[in-house]
Design a protein around this nucleic acid. Sequence first.
DNA 1: CTCGGTAGTGTAA
DNA 2: TTACACTACCGAG
Length: 166
Amino acid sequence: MRYTITKSSLGSMLIAASEKGICAITFGNNTNELMRDLRNRFRGSEITRDDRFMKQHIRDVLSSLDQASTAETLPLDIQGTAFQKLVWKALRNIPHGRTATYAEIANRIGRPTAVRAVAQACAANPVAIAIPCHRVVRSDGSLSGYRWGKQRKAALLEREKEYVNG
DNA sequence: CTCGGTAGTGTAA
DNA sequence: TTACACTACCGAG
């Protein structure tokens, strides 16, 4: 697996990928923090920095981040439980500029009472942006949490809202 | 009506 | 077993 770290409009961003697709997209305030996260999550696997290999991925992710394109179709290579995959799939169907509540997602995957578990699955999302877990909010409209900082969640939603309006 | 407590759910540690 | 990025529901004011 290869990775790279680049600057983005939301701070330092790490992207990791295999031959099959993207394995991780994470945000952080500095390089060390991002690398520590990565090694922690994928302990045991061989990980090497390779900016060249990751070049196209950087382009794709940055344009998803700043220009609303391709986020839903980026090739992913991620692991999760059956339940998590179900949730993540539902998250990818939330259109750009829209939000859904945890309860709505629970309904869509056919597990209407597993609301809290849905939140847990969102929190376990390994690929920011590509799986738009930031579009999930509380039933009362407030933001709830974000693994990479509420601040970033708010910024993303604000940005996407503007895209819809203009 | 508002307000607080609680059950239900999947996971990782 | 516990602690969660939750929320519909129920009883007490």
